[in-house]
Nucleic acid binder design. Structure first.
Lengths: 242, 242
DNA sequence: TGATTTATATATCGCTCGCTACAGAAAAAC
DNA sequence: GTTTTTCTGTAGCGAGCGATATATAAATCA
């Protein structure tokens, strides 16, 4: 599937399938599923309609493939941050900081495709909308699971409402995506992310110093995502200062 | 404009204009501007296309009228909360709590029309999208102004970033609207609102921890004027109040 | 060299979009 | 009554939608 093993028989394709898919992603990302017409796609992909249908099926199948590629290339940072960091707090903090960067990278559409590409849909596209909604639900579920693990381990207080906290994080991320599309710059999104983390529950007991403002590392090397709290940290009794 | 003074000359209108406008609002609110067709509108409004155009102009003008009516009947609660409560904190807290109720009222579309009705748009509807975006910007500006006033009065710390805090609130509200449309119930939205307020900066001087999660519990019925105010703390010690 | 296979370019298809011309219907004005 | 004014129902406009039929172009296989 990934490589051509034998020489194909007929006339070879005159365009690069991956490049065309990338262009389709741009269009769907910017305008959304329904607002992007086949005519838009053929123009930006640089191919004719029959080539599009031969290579990708129909509009819906092309979109599905775009969403899959998006998840692989751009959308995975949240799950990755939550899975890789040692605590839920650090994972979510890093996810929010990285979202501020990802959602404002120059040269690509603002915000998140999964969040914004199928919001105002006709009944004809109800399935597409439901598909993206399910992905959003799944993302929040991932966060909730990570939070629950920290409750079990004692990192978070036993009475922490994992579902509510995860949905709060999801709402903030969706809000950040919309703010990015509405024109907020990267620094503003970083401020929102930083503020949002102030709502995070205190560590249960003898926490180890969680410096949430520490380097998230491997994102995109952009220093704008300092993540440091521009606002005075709220007074806490149990939280050891870094 | 509000009343008919003289008897009109020709054949009288066979439908109630306000009722028709209400139905149009429902359609736009549910599906968004572009995804709602004239055919949808004439069906739900119960009138023919020529009657629609005679009474409201074109689709764009009808939508503008819908948005104006929406602002009057449903959308004003944020500005009202922020304007009426004695502090920005109480105002925003009440606004978030009321959003949880407003965005999940049974028998009407979920979420906020201004937030969600023109998100995936073709270039043909760029003006509509820009118009709603400007309203969102204005709402955040209102919140920012209220926060700034509390900084001046000393209610909030002098180093509070009013713009960032206002944009955070805006992002949370937009996230709540999307969550509502994604199926979150009222209790979940109330939890998100409660969590979001934990990020609010401490009062400049006056004492003790704010128990920001002070139960918005009641939800329905009258969103009490004092609802949510943990304790009246208007006096500030650090700065002279006007 | 054909013959076969696959891709592309042109020119649509049926359908829905926002919108309107036109003629008939229902009221006030005369 | 007749005239005038306004609204409503039918029917259809040009344009764009997603998707294709057809014919030609470019490759491999024999």
């Amino acid at each position: 599937m990934a490589s051509k093993e034998t020489k194909q028989r007929g006339r070879p394709r005159s365009f690069d399938r991956e490049t065309a898919l990338e262009q389709a992603m741009r269009s769907f990302w910017e305008q959304g599923y329904e607002a992007t017409s086949i005519s838009d796609l053929t123009r930006t992909m640089g191919i004719g309609a029959p080539s599009l249908y031969a290579a990708f099926g129909d509009k819906r199948a092309l979109f599905d493939e775009v969403v899959a590629a998006y998840g692989r290339r751009h959308g995975g940072f949240i799950d990755r941050a939550v899975a890789e960091e040692p605590t839920a707090r650090q994972g979510v903090g890093r996810a929010l900081r990285e979202a501020a960067v990802e959602y404002t990278l120059p040269g690509r559409p603002r915000g998140c495709l999964v969040i914004s590409a199928a919001l105002n849909t006709t009944p004809a596209s109800a399935e597409v909308a439901a598909s993206l909604r399910e992905m959003r639900r799944s993302n929040i579920g991932q966060i909730e699971s990570r939070i629950r693990a920290d409750i079990v381990s004692g990192e978070l207080p036993a009475d922490t409402d994992a579902s509510a906290l995860a949905h709060y994080v999801g709402a903030v991320i969706q809000g950040m995506s919309q703010q990015a599309r509405d024109g907020a710059d990267r620094a503003m999104l970083a401020d929102i992310a930083s503020l949002a983390m102030r709502a995070w529950p205190e560590t249960a007991e003898a926490g180890e110093g969680e410096e949430t403002a520490e380097e998230a590392g491997e994102t995109h090397g952009d220093p704008a995502a300092d993540g440091g709290a521009p606002h005075p940290r709220r007074a806490t009794l149990a939280h050891p200062a870094p």
